[in-house]
């Protein structure tokens, strides 16, 4: 379990986050929503120990996060960003193997290589393993990175949880890919696994999230199940836009439409 306690963060005099408290439980797919500039990505970076200059505390399983935890954290926490800067020729397998780097010193052992194969099967990119990463399509690249972060935390630690953070991972992906991706993310969120995703598409949040944290102007509006968070009133507060939730008898969840 991961707790965010009264976290504040500012760059110069510009407040990015103010008094943010939230908790993320294992077994649930948690999502963070909010307009651009609401501090979603900053919160994720603070939770992943990438940004250190914040106030308040981040608590992993009762222990407060410190800067020196980088190496230890790398074994139990993986982060997938919107896109990667990788612009050198490497095979897909070599990129996925990077996920195992925190677990070996010099050479990967058979166990690491087995995990690499398993995650490539899971992401259905095994046939690409010898391909040059630079020649892949955008979707295939993102799948490769998803496989890499899954490889990083493929095994549940003996004590405590593993953590998967997704920072707008499907922003540029097609419809099929978005759903495939979120299905995998949700199935990964089993026991002892905390999954937190920053996402823009509110309908995907309604459909897939177990719990949603709504941020606006660096503050928490509410955290709860999607049907309590994604409502016309809160949407209006966050995005200044009128909206309606529609139901269709064939679909077991609501559909949000802007109503202008």
């Amino acid at each position: 379990m991961l707790e965010v306690n009264r976290v504040g963060y500012q760059i110069g005099s510009h407040k990015i986050l103010e008094d943010v408290s939230a908790s993320f439980l294992p077994g649930k797919l948690s999502m963070i929503i909010g307009p651009n500039g609401s501090g979603k990505s900053s919160l994720l970076k603070i939770m992943s120990n990438e940004i250190h200059a914040y106030t308040g505390s981040i608590v992993y399983e009762g222990k407060e996060l410190a800067i020196k935890d980088t190496v230890r954290l790398a074994k139990i926490r993986a982060v997938l960003s919107q896109h990667s800067e990788l612009s050198f020729p490497l095979s897909v397998e070599e990129v996925v193997l990077m996920g195992r780097y925190p677990h070996f010193t010099f050479k990967p052992d058979a166990h690491d290589l087995l995990i690499v194969k398993q995650v490539m099967d899971k992401m259905e990119i095994r046939h690409l393993s010898e391909r040059n990463y630079l020649t892949l399509s955008g979707g295939e690249k993102q799948k490769t990175h998803f496989a890499r972060v899954l490889a990083q935390i493929w095994e549940v630690p003996e004590k405590g949880c593993r953590y998967l953070f997704l920072d707008e991972p499907i922003a540029f992906m097609d419809l099929n890919f978005q759903h495939e991706f979120l299905r995998i993310a949700r199935s990964f969120a089993g026991s002892n696994t905390v999954v937190v995703a920053v996402i823009h598409d509110l309908n995907l949040a309604i459909q897939y999230a177990d719990t949603v944290l709504a941020l606006n102007k660096g503050r928490v509006i509410v955290q709860g199940p999607p049907e309590e968070v994604i409502t016309p009133v809160i949407i209006k507060e966050m995005y200044q836009i009128e909206s309606k939730l529609l139901r269709h008898m064939d679909v077991p969840f609501s559909i949000l439409v802007a109503n202008r």
Binding site: K45, N49, E50, T70, V71, S81, E85, L86, M98, Y101
Partner: peptide, 23 residues
């Protein structure tokens, strides 16, 4: 040679390398 793994991770970008435990 000792740093070759960390240098590979750095190819992903500094943030990503940090997530993989590289200082």
């Amino acid at each position: 040679l000792r740093y070759s793994k960390a240098l590979n991770a750095l190819l992903l970008g500094e943030e990503e390398a940090g997530y993989l435990g590289v200082d």
